[in-house]
């Protein structure tokens, strides 16, 4: 029986060099995947400082664990899994602390200067409308449960396939589809009023 060959990891060279102590190689990996992981963590935590601290922890954990990375998946999948696990753990702890209620998103989130939308700079009116709608969307996202928010973030925002999400979350594609369907229904209902006003 033939074993299905996997395409080589595009980061193999950087990973090997980083393992040998080349910090510049690991810096290159941070710069390569930083934005993607930032998007994941920020959309899950909705908090700028928490995102920053978590990203430091994620990359530090990955750097320390490079020796145990066996190449069974790509480096990106591996570090993405680290990010997902640490983020979910962090959210559990934050919930327990109850210092920040997820139903009460931070005011800074709604107009966070850390995140810049580059898409509609040419049309200020449309940008304003979209911003208002996105504030509603952010609020609705925070009302989703963590597993549902995670799936929406990975599928709709990060553009991952159902299969990739299932692999990262170690669940079935059916579960991913089901969570996504439920989350979309929730978001549609939450945006109902705002949508009527705007469109």
């Amino acid at each position: 029986m033939f074993r299905q060959s996997r395409p080589p990891d595009p980061d193999q060279d950087l990973v090997t060099r980083a393992r040998q102590g080349d910090t510049r190689a690991f810096d290159a990996l941070i710069l390569k995947y930083g934005d993607k992981l930032y998007g994941l963590v920020y959309n899950m935590t909705n908090h700028k400082e928490d995102t920053h601290d978590l990203l430091q922890e994620i990359f530090a954990r990955a750097y320390q664990s490079l020796g145990s990375f066996r190449g069974n998946s790509t480096f990106y999948t591996w570090i993405y899994q680290i990010a997902v696990n640490l983020t979910l753990n962090f959210l559990k702890k934050r919930k327990r602390r109850a210092g920040l209620s997820l139903n009460d998103p931070e005011s800074s989130v709604q107009q966070d200067p850390a995140l810049v939308d580059h898409t509609h700079e040419a049309n200020p009116e449309q940008q304003t409308r979209l911003k208002e709608l996105q504030v509603k969307l952010n609020e609705a996202m925070q009302k989703l449960s963590e597993p549902h928010r995670m799936v929406v973030t990975m599928f709709d925002i990060q553009g991952m396939s159902h299969g990739e999400i299932a692999k990262v979350l170690k669940t079935s594609e059916g579960t991913v589809r089901s969570r996504l369907h439920y989350a979309h229904l929730q978001l549609q209902s939450a945006l109902q009023d705002s949508w009527n006003e705007r469109f």
Partner: peptide
Amino acid sequence: MKPTVEQLENLLALKRDERPEEGYWQDFLC
């Protein structure tokens, strides 16, 4: 009226373009 799933997906897809402000990663690396 609710947005359709496609409209919702388009709205969510706009968040793909969200990035931290310039210079963030240099400070991050330091």
